[in-house]
Design a protein around this nucleic acid. Structure first.
Lengths: 358, 358
DNA sequence: ATGAAAGCGCTAACAG
DNA sequence: CTGTTAGCGCTTTCAT
C-alpha cells in the first residue's frame, strides 16, 4: 500500500494526497477530507525512508552515551525519547561501552543513517571521530568538551555550584577533616569535580589534602574507604566523585560496622535514581539528568529547525546543587563538650558503653 | 556525495560501485580495489534510506519496553544493541511508560519507519495495537503472552524453576511462615509468579496463605512489610514478586530496626543489577535480562533472515534460578533449643538482653 | 487549486 | 564481467 493506492481510491493525484497529508493549507477541504477518509480506512502510513530521501532530512537524532547500564544514563535516554516523540523525531541510540571500536561504529552508524544531529553525552570520546561528524556538518551537541570549537553546541556543567554547597554543608556540621574520593584520572569530568572540591575547601580555609583515587564504580569506593581508614587523622566526612563510589563506601562501611552517618558523613555526586534507595538515602550533588537531556535535545532541535546564522556559537549551562538526604550529620564532638551530647540526635538513644574507648 | 560521484571518480558505472560495496563476488578485483580506494578517500557511506527503499528492508528492529528507567530494562537494551551492532541492524527504541497513548505512538513509529521486526518486551500492552503490527505481517516476538497465536514468536518464562528453588531454600533453613508480596493484580507476569509461589509452597506441604499485594515498586514493598508486621503469626521469611519490592522491604526494615536477614529473610525476583548493591546484597531469583534480550533478538533475526516455512510457530523458554546472596539465613529457633544458639552465626556476638521478651 | 512528471540515492534486471 | 536503466515511495516544481 502506497501513496498511489490512496490517490487511486480517493480519485485524486498523488500530489494532492501528499499535500493533504502534510496539511498544506491550499488544498480544497473537500478533497482533503476524501483523502483522509481513505487514509484512515486503509491505515496508511507514509514511508519515512522515501520521505527522508527526497527531503534530505531524516528526523532522526543520534544519541551517543557511554553505557546504558550505567545508572546515570537511563533517565537521559528516557527524557530524550520523550522529547523525540513530542517533536516527531526518532532516536538512534548507541553506547560506546568505553570501547574505541564501538565509538567508531557509533559514528559510522550515525552517518549511514543520515541523522539530523547528534548529542554526544558520553564522558570520554575519541576526538578524531568527532571530526567525521564535523566534516559532514552534522549539528553536534557536547557536554563538557574543553575547547570552544565553533559550530558545536556545548553544555557546560557548573560543578562548583553544587560542590561548594556540599562542602559548606559539611563544614557547617563541624566537619573539618573532609576527604574526597576522586574519579578516574583521565576523565575530564572527574578532574573538574576534584578541582571544584579543592577550590571549595580552600575558600573556607580547609586543606583539601585527604584525596584518594577511585574509579567511579562501587569497587573503587569500597577500596577508597579502606585507604581512608588507614590514615592517622581519619576523615569524619567524605565526598565522592560520583554516586556509585558513594554506594561503595556505604557498602564497605556496612561490612566494617561503621555507622553512616554517625561515624562518617558521605556525600555523592550525580543524584542517580538509586541514590534515593540506598541505606541510608544518599545526600548528593544533583546533576539533573533530565535537565541535561532536555538542554541537549533542544540545542539540537534549535540548530536544525532555525538554521539561523550558520555556525553560530551556542553555549549552555547546567547548574548542580546539593540535595539533602540522610547520609550526613553533625561531626562527633572532638575532645570535651563543644557540642552537647543531646544535640547529636540519633534514632536510638546512645548507650554509655559506646563512648568508652575500644 | 553519492554513488554517482564515486562511479565518476573510479571511472566505472554506479552498478559496479554498488556491487563492489556489497561485495558481490563476480566483480573484477582490479575494479573493486579502485572503487574502494575512492570510497575510503572520500569517506563515502551509502545512504541507508535509499537502500532501504529499493530493498524493502530497513535493517531496523523495533524494541518496545515499559520504561527505560525501570532497572529491569537497561541491560536488555544494552544486549539488544550489542547484537544489533554485530548484525548490522539498528534499533528503534520506544518506551510505553504505561501510557496507552505512548503505546499507540510506539506502534505507529514502528510502522512508519518500516521496521523489519518488533520485540515487545513490555509487561502489559494493549492487545489491539498488536493487531496493527500483525496486519502488516511484521515479525513479532513477545514475552509471556498467554494465547499461542500463530506467526508470533513467544518467549515463555519458566517462573517455577527459580521460585521453587527459593521456597525450598527457605524451607531448608527452617522457615515455615513464608510470606509473599505479590505484584499488581492486572499484570500477567505478576500473577504467574504468585502462582508459582503457591504451587511451590503446596508441594512441600506449607500453606501459601501469607500473601499481601504490592505494586512492583519500592513503596509497595515498604507498605507490605508494615502489613506483614501487623499479623499475629509474623512471617520469618518473605519472597517478593520483584526486586524493587524487596528493596522496599529492606528500606522499611532499616527504618523499623528489623535486621535483615537475622530477623527476616528476604528474597527478590528479577536479579536486576541493583540487587548486588543493596545492604545486605539481595538473594533473588534470576530472570536473565541478557538471556531474554538475546532470545528475543535471535528470534527476530531468524524470522527475517531465514524466512523459512512462513508462519511457523516458534516458541522459546527462559528458565529462572535462584542466586544466593546475603539476605536470607536460618530461621530463628522457635521456643527452646531446637537449633543450638551457637549455630546461628551472626557477625556480632548476641547480647543476652536481646533474648528476653520486650 | 490540482495534476504530470522529475528526481532524491540506491539496487537489480537485462543487455551487451 | 560491466554498463544502462527502471523503479523503490515520496515531495515539489511547473503547467494548467
Amino acid at each position: 500500500m502506497d501513496i498511489r493506492e490512496i490517490a487511486r481510491r480517493a480519485k485524486v493525484s498523488t500530489a494532492t494526497v501528499s499535500r493533504a497529508i502534510n496539511r498544506v493549507p491550499t488544498v480544497d477541504p473537500q478533497l482533503a477530507k476524501r483523502v483522509w477518509r481513505v487514509v484512515d480506512e486503509l491505515g496508511y502510513y507514509p514511508n519515512t525512508q522515501a520521505r527522508a530521501l527526497v527531503l534530505g532530512r531524516t528526523r532522526i537524532f543520534g544519541l551517543i552515551v557511554s553505557e546504558i547500564t550505567n545508572p546515570f544514563f537511563p533517565e537521559i535516554v528516557q527524557t530524550f525519547e520523550d522529547l523525540a516523540v513530542e517533536n516527531n523525531y526518532e532516536i538512534l541510540l548507541t553506547s560506546t561501552v568505553h570501547d574505541p571500536k564501538r565509538m567508531e561504529s557509533s559514528v559510522r552508524r550515525m552517518i549511514e543513517r543520515r541523522v539530523d544531529g547528534v548529542a554526544i553525552l558520553t564522558f570520554g570520546m575519541e576526538e578524531s571521530l568527532i571530526e567525521h561528524l564535523r566534516d559532514r556538518k552534522v549539528p553536534l551537541v557536547f557536554v563538557d568538551v574543553g575547547p570552544d570549537v565553533p559550530g558545536i553546541a556545548n553544555i557546560r556543567i557548573n560543578y562548583i555550584s553544587g560542590i561548594r554547597q556540599a562542602v559548606q554543608h559539611l563544614a557547617a556540621m563541624r566537619h573539618t577533616r573532609i576527604a574526597f574520593i576522586a574519579g578516574p584520572e583521565h576523565l575530564k569530568s572527574a578532574g573538574a569535580r576534584r578541582e571544584a572540591f579543592e577550590t571549595s575547601m580552600l575558600e573556607i580555609g580547609l586543606p583539601p589534602d585527604l584525596v584518594v583515587i577511585g574509579d567511579h564504580r562501587m569497587e573503587g569506593g569500597m577500596n577508597a574507604l579502606l585507604e581512608l581508614n588507614k590514615m592517622s587523622a581519619r576523615p569524619t566526612a567524605v565526598m565522592c566523585s560520583n554516586d556509585m563510589t558513594a554506594i561503595g563506601v556505604l557498602r564497605e562501611a556496612y561490612e566494617q560496622n561503621i555507622k553512616i552517618p554517625d561515624d562518617l558523613s558521605v556525600v555523592g555526586f550525580d543524584d542517580i535514581h538509586l541514590a534515593e534507595f540506598t541505606i541510608p538515602p544518599l545526600t548528593t550533588v544533583q546533576m539533573s539528568q533530565h535537565g541535561l537531556a532536555e538542554i541537549a535535545f533542544n540545542a539540537l532541535l534549535n540548530e536544525v529547525e532555525n538554521s539561523t546564522s550558520p555556525r553560530e556559537q551556542h553555549s549552555y549551562e547546567l547548574v548542580t546543587s546539593l540535595v539533602l538526604r540522610k547520609s550526613t550529620t553533625l561531626a562527633r564532638a572532638v575532645g570535651s563538650a563543644i557540642i552537647p551530647e543531646k544535640s547529636n540526635r540519633t534514632t536510638r538513644p546512645r548507650k554509655a558503653a559506646e563512648s568508652s574507648p575500644r
